[in-house]
Simulated scan of single mutants.
Amino acid sequence: MTDIQTKLEIFDRIATRRNERRGFLRFAGGGALAVGGASLLAACGNDDSDLAPGPTPTPTPAPALNDADVLNFALQLEYLEAQFYAFAVFGVGLNASLLTGTGTQGAVTGGRQVPEFANGTGDAVIREYAREIALDEIAHVAFLRSALGTAAVAQPAINISAGTVASPGSFTAAARAAGLVTANQVFDPYENENNFLLGAFIFEDVGVSAYKGASVLIANKTYLEAAAGILAAEAYHAGLVRTVLYRRGLGTPATPTTAAVAAVPALITGANAISNARDSLDGTITNTSTGVIGDDDQGITGTDANVSNIVPTDANGIVYSRSAGQVLNIVYLNSASVSSGGFFPAGLNGNIKTSAANA
């Protein structure tokens, strides 16, 4: 399949959702603009303030986040996922028309087509699952950009590379943090379909918990409904990736690959190691009612390695939330409070850009 054919296929799928997006925008009634207008009015203060002297002004606190801030944060996570899946499945990134916006636009480092996806070998089910997820993620980018309109931020610089032993990319850095590879190895998520599944697992659970955590910050009910719809799609994706990893992991031992590249980790232990690494980055969650510390990031098996854990939940069967700061701890690959790193080497655009202080 040529690049042109690939892009036509991708954007034909996006076009089928155009009417849905237009309906959303009509129903929203220019909500993003209304949010921006409300913020502007709040910043202007009292129109009569210049008629009489007032008290000495005090420092202005940081502005409260609005719906556009939250949606732009979500958009940048979608840029990351969409680029990873688009390259892995189709061998090309997002169209340039989907990357523009406010803030500094950055390039994508890394990304290539998984060989089994390119030549039609390997597991056809995984190939088709990956294709469907890729198209969904690209559609999420297009939808959020439509909802935000001129308020949409540009794609920041994104690193989705394996890199080299001496200059590791984000995926290798993440895999080293999880103990999947040594300091003399790299982890390439595009090397084969098993590595691709582990690479996808790094992102999927984070997306679900990010949308759930952001839901309490969204005031506009129309936007909230849209975010809930994307959360549901991400949850389907995450459950699917977990299911495939678990099923294949039951019968797939580690196998050697090319020189200087790590052997494919056993899928179950590899996924569980990634989960533990994410937990070490985003801190622990304490139930304020019971004081019980919970594991907000769980592997694909329970305490018994032979028992599956396809849906990571608390004791009530409820999926965990992550704050924006915790999400950034993971994508920046840093447990400290920083504003760039990892998969976003130059940080994010917009008002949400600093990770939590968990170090």
Rank of each mutant, 00 (worst) to 15 (best):
Y85F: 12
D48C: 12
S39A: 15
Q83I: 00
A68Y: 05
F73I: 04
A52Q: 09
L94V: 03
A96W: 00
G30I: 04
D50S: 08
Y79L: 01
N72A: 11
N66R: 05
A38G: 03
A52P: 02
N95R: 11
A38Y: 09
S49I: 10
N95K: 06
T58R: 15
N66K: 02
P55L: 10
A28D: 15
L41E: 14
A52N: 05
N72C: 06
N72L: 13
P55K: 11
A64I: 09
A43F: 08
L77I: 04
A74Q: 11
N95V: 01
E78A: 12
L41A: 14
A62S: 09
D69F: 00
A96C: 00
G91R: 09
Y79C: 00
P61D: 15
L40I: 06
A82P: 05
A96T: 02
A43I: 07
N72V: 04
G31M: 11
N95W: 07
A38S: 07
V35S: 14
A64K: 15
L65Q: 08
F73W: 04
Q83H: 15
D47K: 10
P53K: 01
G45T: 05
V70M: 08
A82V: 03
G31Q: 10
L75N: 02
F27H: 06
L41H: 09
F87I: 03
D47H: 07
A96M: 01
P59S: 10
D69I: 02
A88Y: 13
A28W: 13
N46M: 08
D67G: 06
S49F: 01
L71E: 04
Q83R: 10
A42N: 13
G29W: 09
L40N: 07
G45Q: 14
L80G: 04
F90D: 00
V92N: 13
G93N: 03
F84C: 00
F27T: 12
A86I: 03
A34I: 07
N95T: 07
V89G: 06
Q83C: 05
D69C: 01
V89H: 12
D50R: 14
G31P: 02
A52E: 11
L65P: 06
Y79T: 00
Q83S: 05
F87S: 02
N72D: 07
A38E: 12
A52C: 10
D67N: 14
A68M: 05
C44W: 08
P53D: 06
P61N: 10
D50E: 13
G93A: 10
A32L: 07
P63S: 11
Q76C: 01
T58D: 13
L33V: 12
N95H: 15
F87Y: 15
G36F: 14
E81Q: 11
F87V: 00
F90P: 01
T58F: 12
N72H: 03
L71F: 13
A64W: 09
D48F: 13
F27Q: 14
A74V: 09
Q83P: 01
D47N: 08
N95P: 02
L94M: 13
E81C: 01
F84P: 03
F90G: 00
A38T: 07
A96P: 09
L77V: 03
A62I: 14
A68F: 02
